[in-house]
Amino acid sequence: MKEEEIIEKLQKLGLTKYESLAYITLLKLGPSKATDITKESGIPHTRVYDVLSSLHRKGFVDVMHGAPRLYKPVNPEVVLEKIKEEFIEDLENLKAAFLELYRQVHGEELPEIWTIQGFENTVERAEYVIRTAKHEVLINAPFEFLRLLKDEIKRRKDIIFVIISNFEEIPEWLNADNIILAKTGGAPWLMASWIIGDIDYALFFGALPRDKRREKFYSFWAKSPKIIQNYMHWFYTIYLDNSEIIKPLNYGKLPKPLSFVNIRTLITVLKFTELPRRAEVIGRLVETKEPVTLDGEIVEYEYTPLMANVTVKASGKEWKVGGIGSYFEDVEGEKFILLE
Rank of each mutant, 00 (worst) to 15 (best):
I245P: 05
G42I: 07
T311D: 01
P209G: 07
I228D: 04
G197W: 00
F98A: 13
E19G: 11
V74R: 09
P276N: 11
E124V: 07
I337K: 03
G322D: 12
L270Y: 09
G42N: 09
T46H: 13
E127V: 09
K28D: 11
G296C: 07
N178T: 04
N230G: 09
L138E: 02
K39A: 15
Y251S: 09
F143P: 14
I113L: 10
E108Y: 14
E19I: 15
D200Y: 03
A192K: 07
V48K: 01
V261I: 02
L99R: 08
T304G: 07
D36A: 08
L27V: 05
E86S: 15
A279C: 01
A67G: 13
T122K: 13
N166K: 05
H233L: 02
P142I: 12
K33T: 09
P111W: 12
S219W: 14
A141R: 08
W319S: 01
E318D: 15
I7F: 11
D90I: 08
K317T: 03
L55N: 03
Q117R: 15
L52N: 05
D177M: 05
R125Q: 12
L148V: 09
I263F: 02
R69F: 09
A207N: 13
G42S: 07
N242E: 14
P225N: 01
P248I: 12
I139P: 06
D50S: 07
A133C: 11
T122L: 06
D330G: 03
T46D: 03
L249E: 00
K134W: 11
E297L: 11
K247S: 10
N75V: 15
L254K: 00
V129M: 05
K223C: 05
L94F: 14
E152I: 13
Y102W: 00
R47I: 11
V321M: 14
F60V: 00
R69L: 15
R69T: 15
F235L: 03
T273E: 08
G206R: 07
G325L: 00
T184K: 12
F328Y: 08
G186T: 11
K2Q: 15
E302V: 04
E290D: 08
I282E: 04
Y128D: 04
K17N: 09
L146V: 06
V162D: 03
V312D: 00
E108H: 13
F204R: 07
R277G: 01
L29P: 11
R147S: 12
E89N: 11
P111M: 10
G42R: 07
D295H: 05
D330N: 07
P305D: 04
I6V: 05
L110N: 15
I163L: 08
M307G: 06
I199V: 14
I116G: 02
V269D: 01
L99P: 01
F143I: 14
H56N: 03
